[in-house]
């Protein structure tokens, strides 16, 4: 039913520079490309241009130079085709607006509706399904301001699900969210990746990046490195991206081992979850993946009720 272009989504950012009206350059000469069935972490400090990059991808700000192509089309056209779903940063939302959870999720269907935007049976079913997938069904009649941080995130995630966008942009989805919800969001993203979606997720939560991202883009005003997590998310690249902002701990081999093993542990943290490198100092290493709860005794992570 769907044509090939929209079935195989891709994102192509080439040479994008964004200068704000006040003369601030939010992003300089950014280039990278991604293709379907992938979760890409967009990693950088505050003010490094993550949100600016999102805005440029969606055409909310016009790049002074460079182009963005989504599924081989210009951004505006891709959005008219409902290819792009966006989960905003919490600060961008007016939480006092008189809408219920289900109303917000229904907004995700607007692009699929006719002139009068009257929801069809199918639209309602999609909303119910999306709410169910993020375990928010019992809150569907709540005003959106009356939710916890994690629940709020899930509502907007459900809106993106209901929209059926092939490219999903998530701006800091883990900020103000507890670990359980974070894992549940990560699991949901995994399902979406398997279904062929492409996700770009900004975060400065370093530790969880190797857990769920198969690609990373490191930015600081410009793209410093982009590629598969194993080869790009390295200690030296991270130190470049984060400059002196990161806390840095290193335990050398002699402090860890009683034998001749030279491998040491390096912990990088920006006060959220740290990233840990283990091995010889001078070689590039794969970052360590954390053990997930599911590998241990606890129940699999799920969206839990964190309201009470």
């Amino acid at each position: 039913m769907k044509d090939k272009v929209s079935a195989d989504i891709s994102l192509n950012v080439s040479g994008v520079t964004v200068t704000y009206r006040n003369g601030n350059t939010g992003l300089r000469d950014a280039s990278f490309s991604l293709s379907a069935g992938s979760i890409c972490g967009l990693v950088g400090v505050n003010g490094s241009g993550k949100s600016t990059l999102f805005k440029a991808i969606m055409g909310f700000v016009t790049p002074t130079t460079g182009t963005v192509q989504i599924g081989g089309r210009p951004a505006a056209e891709a959005m008219r085709k409902n290819l792009v779903a966006y989960v905003p940063q919490a600060e961008e939302v007016d939480w006092n607006f008189p809408v219920l959870v289900e109303d917000v999720v229904m907004m995700g269907r607007y692009g699929h509706m006719g002139f009068l935007r009257t929801p069809s049976v199918h639209d309602r079913a999609m909303v119910t399904d999306a709410l169910d997938r993020v375990r928010m069904t019992e809150y569907r009649d709540r005003q959106i301001g009356e939710l916890s941080g994690g629940q709020k995130k899930r509502v907007f995630l459900a809106r993106a699900l209901a929209q059926e966008g092939k490219l999903i942009l998530l701006d800091e989805p883990f900020t103000g969210v507890d670990v359980k919800t974070e894992h549940a969001i990560i699991d949901l993203m995994g399902e979406l990746r398997d279904a062929g979606h492409l996700m770009l997720v900004s975060t400065h939560n370093l530790g969880s990046v190797p857990d769920f991202c198969d690609q990373v883009v490191l930015i600081n005003q410009t793209v410093l490195a982009a590629g598969p997590t194993e080869t790009t998310f390295t200690q030296s690249n991270l130190e470049e991206a984060f400059g002196g902002v990161l806390r840095h701990f290193r335990l050398d081999g002699t402090e860890l081992h009683n034998d001749e093993d030279e491998r040491g542990v390096t912990v990088l943290t920006d006060d959220e979850r740290p990233v840990i490198f283990y091995g010889n100092k001078d070689r590039a290493h794969e970052p360590r993946r954390r053990q997930r709860d599911r590998d241990e005794t606890g129940p699999p992570p799920e969206f839990m009720d964190d309201a009470s």
Binding site: K55, M58, G59, F60, M79, R80, N82, V84, A85, Y86, P88, E92, V93, D94, F97, V99, V104, M107, G108, Y110, G111, F115, L116, R117, R159, Q163, G165
Partner: peptide
């Protein structure tokens, strides 16, 4: 005729763009 479109724009202008 257009109250829903206006509502989405007033609620979340950026999102309004992503739904066309």
């Amino acid at each position: 005729l257009k109250w829903r479109d206006l509502m989405v724009v007033f609620f979340d202008e950026n999102y309004a763009r992503t739904v066309g």
